[in-house]
């Protein structure tokens, strides 16, 4: 019996201590003006007159003033006013408001749902909902190149994220007709890209021979993503016998009817027998 009474007394003491402990939250400051402090959650709280501005690490007064981007711990009194702000340049946890603090948020209007924020039924081609959390996704891109791609060629990806640098991402040859690359890319990324052989004069063209619009990759949350593309042709490579596009800073060589570009010097030119 005595033991039970002691346990009940201890529980009561804990509850009383908890009840008397001041309520506080942490977050990143958005603004401090007009007698209110705002966190990046968008929540505004009334500031009590004589609020104490302290350094969060030392709990001593600081000369620093509350300002956007600073982190802070706000301590409330029973009326829901902020009576102490502990400032920190080091990140402090930012999260949803605890239930005990929600009533302290000052807002003139009654909140109501935004129909535009209702979860959209966005499904991918396989019917799986698409989410974009920003987590890194392992992306493997494999591209099939046309058979007339020179065997010694290097293939690259040029993207809008690189200002269309034609050698932004180098791919690795995996056989005579395929190149591959694996990269970690954050989900939510929208990437426009094209394949090149190192310059924009050697970029891919469509199967119809025209310049193609950049490919578009929208990366949703998955653990891995495999992408298979086909390049049908290169801008600088026509069929055999066609005029080859000249390269910058290279004046084309005069017409040469022999197909061997580096025959030994002194070899007589072809003539009737």
């Amino acid at each position: 019996m005595t033991r039970r009474l002691r346990a009940l007394g201890a529980l009561l003491a804990v509850v009383l201590l908890a009840a008397s402990a001041p309520v506080s939250i942490t977050g990143q400051l958005l603004a401090y003006q007009g007698g209110f402090v705002f966190f990046t959650t968008g929540d505004g709280f009334r500031v009590a007159p004589g609020v104490r501005i302290l350094d969060n690490a030392t709990k001593k007064p600081t000369s620093e003033q509350p300002a956007p981007r600073l982190y802070a711990r706000a301590t409330f009194d029973a009326q829901g006013r902020v009576v102490e702000l502990d400032l920190s340049r080091a990140p402090l946890p930012v999260g949803p408001l605890p239930e005990a603090v929600e009533p302290f948020v000052v807002a003139a209007s009654t909140p109501f749902p935004d129909p535009e924020l209702a979860p959209a039924s966005r499904l991918n081609a396989q019917g799986v909902p698409r989410h974009f959390s920003g987590k890194p996704v392992l992306v493997t891109i494999t591209v099939q190149v046309p058979p007339n791609t020179p065997f010694g060629s290097q293939v690259y990806i040029t993207t809008d994220a690189s200002g269309w640098n034609p050698q932004a991402i180098a791919l690795d040859r995996i056989d005579a007709l395929h190149f591959r690359i694996t990269r970690r890319i954050d989900s939510g990324t929208i990437l426009h890209y094209l394949y090149t052989r190192g310059t924009l004069q050697t970029e891919e063209i469509g199967q119809n021979g025209l310049r193609r619009t950049p490919r578009r990759l929208v990366l949703s949350d998955t653990d891995v993503r495999a992408i298979d593309d086909i390049v049908y042709g290169w801008a600088d490579l026509g069929p055999p016998g066609s005029l080859q596009a000249p390269q910058p800073n290279t004046i084309p060589t005069p017409f040469n009817p022999n197909p061997f570009p580096n025959l030994p010097p002194g070899l007589p030119t072809p003539h009737p027998g």
Binding site: D160, W164, H192, L194, E203, N249
Partner: peptide, 17 residues
């Protein structure tokens, strides 16, 4: 100046390697 748009034609160049 930095371009980050989707128009790859603005990345075309006429320079040699």
């Amino acid at each position: 100046y930095i371009y980050f748009g989707a128009n790859s034609d603005l990345g075309q160049n006429s320079l040699s390697g």
